[in-house]
């Protein structure tokens, strides 16, 4: 049965693509697109002999990713200009951070919204300044708005009215309802300043955030890309001291699992602790794609979807949340 293994193998060892026939290439490109890893794949395979039709698709993906990088850095600059007068630390997260810092994880990476982290005490100030500078609310729904403000680790998403780009303003890296509470003050205190005054998380915190995002906060959608980020971050900065930092944030299980799975999929040997039985279940979910790039293994996916909500909210809140959502859907 085909799954996304064909993609993780190509990323792990680019030489393996020499064995691909036309159907193999077709599946590889479709799955890479679906996992938003085609720009990464394009860089990884650059210079290798391959059919010209595949080279052409990958060249387009490289150009696209480069344009995406420029647009993402410009968006970060726009946020920097808006927030600079406040003097508050503004920390870039995820894709934009990797691109701004020139990290390997950023090479060819698709970058979506701009994610930034600011001190919780200054969240309202940041919000007011961004609204002044042309960002607007996306979600007009009062329940959603209230939910974000009460329980989430970020403001409701804002979109810029001229550039049509979203910004997520975080004050920590996990929802307030999650079982675990990372040390947001430490994330900010230890962040690293870039030339333009914007900041990025310290290397180990970056890895902790990527792992938290993947395992403590989501249903593993986009997980192969997250694990590629983790693979690159671990490779670039090493993992000495990562475990202690993960323990500090309460993320030792997530970070341990992230490193084990990244090692299993992409190699590198950077991991700590023993493998767990459930790793196989995670792999089954992460690799669930057919050779058209379509999601497969519906039951496994559903299981992880339910799990993501379970992790994010205590049972009573979850029940209340689902009831409200159900009532609103039924009313429409």
């Amino acid at each position: 049965m085909t799954d996304a293994r064909i993609l993780t193998e190509a990323l792990r060892d680019p030489a393996t693509v020499a064995q691909l026939d036309a159907a193999g290439w077709t599946a590889l490109l479709a799955i890479a697109r679906a996992e938003q890893l085609i720009g990464t794949l394009a860089h990884r395979l650059a210079g290798l002999p391959m059919p010209s039709a595949a080279a052409r698709v990958l060249e387009d993906a490289r150009a696209s990713a480069e344009q995406g990088r420029i647009a993402a850095l410009w968006e970060a600059e726009m946020a920097r200009r808006a927030l600079a007068p406040t003097g508050m630390p503004v920390i870039l997260l995820k894709g934009t951070a990797y691109a701004a810092a020139g990290l390997a994880a950023g090479t060819g990476r698709a970058i979506g919204d701009l994610d930034i982290l600011v001190p919780r005490a200054r969240l309202e100030e940041a919000e007011a300044v961004l609204l002044q500078a042309g960002w607007e609310w996306v979600k007009p729904d009062p329940y959603d708005d209230l939910y974000y403000r009460r329980w989430m680790h970020e403001l409701p998403p804002l979109i810029h009215r001229e550039r049509d780009r979203m910004i997520d303003v975080h004050h920590t890296i996990l929802p307030l309802t999650a079982r675990v509470t990372p040390d947001a003050d430490a994330l900010i205190a230890d962040s690293v300043v870039l030339e333009n005054g914007l900041r990025i998380l310290a290397p180990h915190d970056m890895l902790c955030h990527a792992a938290a995002h993947l395992f403590a906060d989501g249903d593993l959608a986009g997980g192969l890309r997250n694990l590629w980020d983790i693979h690159c971050l671990a490779g670039e900065h090493g993992i000495a001291g990562v475990e202690a930092r993960a323990v500090h944030h309460g993320l030792e299980a997530a970070v341990g699992r992230a490193l084990r799975l990244a090692d299993r999929l992409y190699g590198g040997g950077l991991r700590y602790g023993q493998g767990r039985d459930r790793d196989m279940l995670y792999l089954r979910r992460l690799l669930a794609r057919d050779d058209w790039g379509r999601p497969t293994r519906k039951l496994t996916r559903l299981g992880f979807y339910v799990r993501s909500h379970w992790l994010r909210m205590p049972p009573a809140l979850l029940a209340q949340h689902l009831f409200t959502k159900w009532r609103k859907t039924a009313a429409q």
Partner: peptide, 8 residues
């Protein structure tokens, strides 16, 4: 070309 489509 090469039996590899650009799009699905």
């Amino acid at each position: 070309d090469d039996g590899i489509p650009d799009f699905n």
